[in-house]
Design a protein around this nucleic acid. Sequence first.
DNA 1: AATATGATGCGCT
DNA 2: GCGCATCATATTT
Length: 192
Amino acid sequence: MPPTVNAWAEGDPLEVAPRLLGAVLTHGGVSVRLTEVEAYAGPDDPGSHAFRGRTPRNEVMFGPPGRLYVYFVYGMHHCANLVTGPEGEPGAVLLRAGEVVGGLDTARVRRPGSTDRDLARGPARLCRALGIDLAANATAPDLTAGEPPREVSTGPRVGLRHAAERPWRFWSTGDPTVSTYRPAAPRRPAGR
DNA sequence: AATATGATGCGCT
DNA sequence: GCGCATCATATTT
């Protein structure tokens, strides 16, 4: 197995992110070709889980590059990041969407009712399709090189309340499996 | 098609 | 206790 994962992961998340597009991630019998990712930097990035320092949950982000940082949100969803280097410096790339290129039957079972296009279209859907949960946290992913996209687009990140305007989202231009942009949920309309 | 809202639990202050 | 790197469903155009 080529140790290429660490080579890709090592470095600034802003450089690693576009590099990951087209790579194939395999987990739980399903393979996904990444079409959309998002970079998260360390202490200087208010959108990063590591912004407020090291905690038990984000600990993996401070470790060596090339591992998965999986977290649980909204009481029901998992999201997966690839930790970027260097060690001690928290950085990661959120795996936002992809195209299922292997284990289609398994992915369909995990995401009943979904069209093939939507199987891994979104960070939580991607985890669901691949069977990724907290058990995969801090493990080294099976990630191999793939065909890079013809064209890469960049834009603002999705679903953040802070620093969402930074153009740190990268996707394969025109790919149908890229998730649709949705602005951060507005805060409750003034409670009363 | 577009927008609104409920679900649901953990991490952090 | 509040807020969340979300998604599915219901409701309205």
